[in-house]
């Protein structure tokens, strides 16, 4: 019991992940204050504001991060906000921003160039974040597909951070730290962060200091946000699999400890 072949564990995890997708169950999702704060801070933005939705995650963490960006876009488009997307991730960031934003924009009948723009990616996130403080166009002369910003009507009213009301940063890496220390601290743009479950504990400090207005941690955070926006989707569906795997891990840990204590008890008896 104390030492099980790890392949059995892998098999159990696989079964625990697959079952909820075959037999879906509706689970009540409670809301944490951090996710509620994300929802409230987006709600507090005046309708029609210009906002950044930042796709700072790699394709590998789509399962955790994409439900956040999708729901954020739905939330912003519902409020008729003008959305500007960008990414500091060269590998897949701009194309994910393109695909997800186009898909959600179609749901709301939004027009590219007027209601939303994808700036794409530029090398050197520190220089990019700092440079946009004086001029977005100097850093991104064209959008992701090469159209000059001067030809996009939305960008007529967006010159630098002064014209941005809110930043919705979704990251699976440390770029969120730089958005805080450069853009939030130096330019005062309010922001929230959505991140992977592994990354979330680190950012509680930023929420406590008020640098992040709210925090979404992992798929559970995304599910909470979907629930709050009233559009349950991928993350809410994923809660079944995540629940079962968590319970399985707890059961395995308990099993391992039972085995450990039995062996320890036997060893003590042998010594006596």
């Amino acid at each position: 019991m104390e030492q099980m072949d790890r392949r059995w564990i892998y098999l159990m995890v696989a079964i625990a992940v697959i079952i909820p997708f075959i037999v879906p169950a509706e689970l009540p999702i409670s809301i944490t204050p951090e996710a509620q704060a994300v929802f409230d801070s987006v709600e507090a933005i005046p309708d029609g504001s210009n906002v950044f939705v930042v796709f700072d995650y790699y394709p590998s963490t789509i399962a955790e991060c994409e439900p956040m960006t999708t729901t954020a876009l739905r939330h912003f488009f519902r409020k008729n906000c003008n959305v500007i997307t960008l990414s500091n991730i060269p590998l897949g960031g701009p194309s994910m921003a393109e695909t997800v934003t186009r898909r959600v924009a179609e749901e709301y009948g939004k027009v590219y160039g007027e209601d939303y723009v994808n700036l794409g990616y530029k090398y050197g996130y520190v220089a990019v974040m700092t440079g946009m403080g004086s001029s977005i166009e100097s850093i991104f002369p064209t959008d992701n597909s090469g159209t000059p910003l001067s030809e996009l009507p939305l960008m007529d009213s967006v010159k630098n951070y002064d014209d941005i009301a809110f930043i919705f940063e979704v990251a699976d890496n440390a770029t969120a730290d730089y958005w805080v220390s450069i853009v939030n601290a130096q330019y005062g743009v309010p922001m929230i962060c959505g991140t992977t479950a592994v990354g979330a504990p680190k950012y509680y400090a930023f929420v406590a200091s008020g640098q992040f207005l709210g925090l979404l941690g992992g798929m559970k955070g995304a599910a909470e946000y979907e629930q709050l926006v009233g559009m349950p989707d991928e993350a809410v569906r994923g809660m079944g699999a995540q629940s079962l795997v968590h319970l399985l891990i707890i059961a395995l840990v308990a099993l391992g400890n039972i085995g450990y204590f039995i062996i320890r008890y036997k060893q003590r008896r042998e010594r006596i």
Partner: peptide, 26 residues
């Protein structure tokens, strides 16, 4: 590349389960 990256990341679930089972002892 994208499916391969997602697959590698997903294997973390298996590894976390196995590491937790092995390392978490009272």
């Amino acid at each position: 590349q994208m499916p391969m990256m997602a697959t590698m990341f997903a294997t973390l679930a298996f590894y976390i389960a196995s590491a937790a089972y092995r390392a978490f002892r009272a």
